[in-house]
Amino acid sequence: MREDQLIQLLRERGEEGVEALLQYYGPLMRYVIAPILPDPRDREECLWEVAMRVWQKIHLYDPQRGSWNSWLTALTRNTALNRAQRLEEQSQQLTDTLPDRAPTPEESLLHRERQEELQRAIQRLSPGERMLFYRRYYYLQPISQIARELGLTQRAAEGRLYRLKKRLYHQLKGGSQ
């Protein structure tokens, strides 16, 4: 099934769209979810949650802003992270003394500015370093997985990541002084 056909099915709000999404893009979604949720049951539940969110938010997908795979990857990752956060909160005992988790307007502004600064730093990386950064800090993949998929030994992958972090640290820290 072509990508545009799938998107059309989803926009028509039919069940066939969700089935086709899981059939053709299930492996991609599982690939993104796996490093974030270690439990297999959580992964499957998250997969259905992602499918529902795609079905609900398909109207927000704009091909002009990015590819379908990028949009789906971002949606899947955010859903998995939210689920992981919920699971973490459920494992803690809630009390009245816990601080409000919602960011303040100042924190939101700071977060946005940090993102922009980091984005600029990432753009200065080579394509290989950029991919390594996203694998580690966006896809949250373990070193072992990164090493396997790039055809490196674990030690070589750790070395590359160390140099990358060092470089980013100096760029970001130096920009803040």
Binding site: N69, S70, H111, L118, R130, Y134, Y137, Y138, Y139
Partner: peptide
Amino acid sequence: LDAMLRQNVPDAPPDAVVRQV
């Protein structure tokens, strides 16, 4: 460093990165 990079990573990866990962 690790935690701050994770927290402030861009919202969506570039298409070129998605193709390679």
